[in-house]
Design a protein around this nucleic acid. Structure first.
Length: 601
RNA sequence: GGCCUCGUGGCGCAACUGAAUAGCGCACUGGAUUUCGGCUCCAGCGGUUGCAGGUUUGAAUCCUGCCGGGGUCACCA
């Protein structure tokens, strides 16, 4: 069974053994690894061996070595039928029946490419989203969410147990600002009586706070205060700080208000998460974790890893590592961001049996995580090396950076609605939706709109920054989500029309594979490797690119050869099976990206 | 300024982590349907991979310097 999981690798292993044996026999040298590539389209062949790499062990002309080795392989490996040598590259042609057989083998495997985890194994925890509860989610969060969710799914598919988690920053001065503003200007507004999503309502008061704060500052400056003093002394800010102190002291009234408004936000987030199609196995709340880490700092201080400054604040000196000094505890003994992160990391490794902890956080925090992991390892936690910062680039708009103050933030909910609207416009023109009910149609528009958005964001390497062009993101042609969805729908249409039982294994028989069938099968066989690779590299983009290549390959196949109209019965079945399997893999690949596929569109 | 990071045809992205003639999409030009969904397919145009050195049989990829963009250098998170 396991034998079938990595068909591409299996052949490669076989060839590798033969190459080693061949070089031993011909040149008497032992090499430990062989470098393989998939053969480029311009050359004939399926596997390519890089002969250049042998030159370190074998003196000679690479072309000559390639030719000798090629001959050996043709004579010693049954599946190798031909070879050609171009410069230092040995291209090998594998026979049709190998590919046909491999295809027949994987055809029956459900979830081909997915490895099921052993429940007893240690797990991987993926943290993502982790919003503040004072304002709604925006485009930046969307990238974070899509990435985190997808990476978690990919790691799961690669054979690991996975926990998806977020830490909700539900406490602190930011939420107090919203609370205070609501208390003052709210007139008892609630999500219910305003018909606003809770996160939006609370966000409005965060803005209201900022406005009032600025006005007060202005007034103070007019009274002759310096700008710096005004910034600190504005009464509304002082009051918000007072509110935070009350909260920490457990003041019942403040806590009650905090609970109420946070709940509004949670309810709002739940809607957004649901629309986006992401979920979590466990939520951490900062209100529960913000005190963690202090005792660890105390212990580290004792052990001489940290040191105390005269004012009582605690620091770590990382100048030996080429970094700076970093504060880990405030002079008044309260925790900073770093303190909490030390504490929560330890907590998580206690809560779960983890082999790895992935933090999905933007690259503006690269330095923070570098320091965090270093501190954890200095504190003696051996698992520190298993912490990974999945750092992703910013999302910029054509107009530049998103700035909440300038109102250029793209709201997550609004964006999803817009994408759905665009999908509706286009589908109403072109769609084949006879017999679909209205709700069915609406679901479909959402599938397409979100498919476009998600694919647009996930197809780019996470590390790179994205220029979010609203017009391009709703493109439906070329390398886009809807293009792939369209291909899937077209395949389903074919399968609906296939009025014969195509799920019957075809003996390898004397079928000669068409060139398009060959390359399609080759692409299919790659899927398991792609999943592993995407998991190792934490990159949904690899899945997206693979899927796009597969779809292009299929469309070319579709255009070139008849499927249902094929006259040869056996070939007709194989082509239908190919269509079926391609559809299935599009679906699973898109699942890994959190994208749905429609049967019609 | 120190540190980190990025720079690939007009635009948006790839390149299996050092290999062949650097791929693809959009845009532009020209073709393809008595056929299973034309939101498709095929072809053309377009790049001395920011610049200059270096390492290597081989560099978009590694090293050095410079130029340009972004990030970060908070007792915010």
């Amino acid at each position: 069974m396991h034998f079938n999981l990595f068909p591409y690798k299996i052949m490669q292993k076989k060839l590798e053994q033969a190459v080693k044996k061949g070089l031993q026999e011909i040149y008497g040298v032992t090499i430990n690894s062989v470098e393989f590539q998939t053969t480029k389209k311009d050359f004939e062949g399926d596997y390519t061996i890089v002969v250049f790499a042998f030159l370190r062990f074998i003196k000679g002309n690479p072309v000559e070595i390639g030719n000798k080795l090629g001959e050996f392989l043709v004579n010693n490996v049954a599946e190798v039928t031909k070879f050609n040598v171009v410069k230092g590259f040995l291209n090998l042609v594998i026979n049709d029946s190998y590919f046909l057989n491999s295809f027949q083998n994987i055809y029956k495997i459900e979830n081909f490419g997915f490895v099921s985890p052993n429940p007893k194994d240690k797990a991987v925890m993926v943290e993502y989203s982790s919003p503040n509860t004072n304002k709604p989610l925006h485009l930046g969060h969307i990238r974070n969410n899509l990435l985190g969710y997808s990476v978690a799914e990919i790691i799961k598919a690669s054979g690991k147990n996975v926990y998806k988690t977020q830490i909700i920053n539900d406490r602190g001065i930011h939420i107090c600002k919203s609370m205070l503003a609501w208390q003052r200007f709210g007139n008892g507004e609630t999500p219910k009586n305003t018909n606003l999503k809770g996160d939006k309502l609370v966000g409005n008061y965060y803005v209201a706070f900022d406005k009032a704060y600025k006005e007060e500052m202005k007034a103070l400056v007019a009274q002759g205060k310096s700008e710096e003093d005004a910034k600190k002394e504005a009464p509304i800010l002082v009051e918000a700080q007072e509110m935070l102190r009350k909260w920490e002291a457990g003041d019942t009234e403040v806590v009650a208000l905090w609970k109420k408004m946070n709940q509004w936000v949670f309810d709002g987030f739940d809607i957004t998460y649901k629309e986006l199609g992401v979920n979590f196995d466990k939520n951490y709340y900062e209100s529960n974790t913000y005190l963690l880490g202090k005792d660890v700092v105390a212990k580290g201080l004792n052990d001489g890893i940290f040191y105390k400054k005269d004012d009582g604040s605690v620091w770590i000196d990382l100048t030996d590592e080429g970094l700076d000094e970093k504060i880990v505890l405030r002079a008044d003994g309260t925790a900073v961001y770093m303190t909490q992160d030390i504490g929560t990391a330890i907590e998580r490794f206690k809560d779960f049996d983890l082999e790895k902890l992935v933090y999905t956080v933007g690259n503006e925090q690269d330095y923070h995580f570098k320091v965090l992991f270093l501190i954890l390892s200095k504190l003696g936690y051996s698992w520190a090396k298993n912490c990974y910062h999945l750092s992703y680039g910013m999302v910029d708009l054509p107009s530049g950076k998103m700035k909440s103050r300038e109102g250029t933030v793209v709201d997550a909910d609004d964006l999803m609605v817009e994408m759905t609207n665009t999908a509706r416009d286009i589908s109403q023109e072109l769609g084949k939706l006879e017999g679909y009910s209205k709700p069915e149609k609406e679901t479909l528009y959402k599938t397409i709109g979100l498919g476009a958005l998600k694919y647009y964001i996930l197809k780019v390497d996470p590390k790179k920054r994205i220029l979010f062009n609203p017009e391009e993101s709703v493109d439906f042609a070329g390398n886009t989500g809807p293009f792939i969805q369209y291909t899937y729908a077209r395949i389903q249409s074919i399968l609906r029309k296939a009025s014969f039982d195509y799920h019957v294994t075809q003996s390898e028989a004397e079928v000669n594979l068409h060139e398009k069938e060959r390359s399609l099968i080759k692409q299919l066989l790659l899927f398991p490797e792609i999943i592993q690779n995407a998991a190792i590299n934490h990159s949904p983009a690899l899945i997206a690119n693979f899927t796009y290549d597969l779809v292009k390959e299929y469309n070319s196949f579709y255009q070139t050869v008849p499927i249902l109209a094929c006259e040869n019965e056996q070939e007709k079945i194989i082509r239908t099976q190919l269509s079926f399997k391609v559809g299935e893999i599009i679906k699973s690949a898109f699942n890994l990206l959190g994208i749905n596929v429609p049967d019609r569109m």
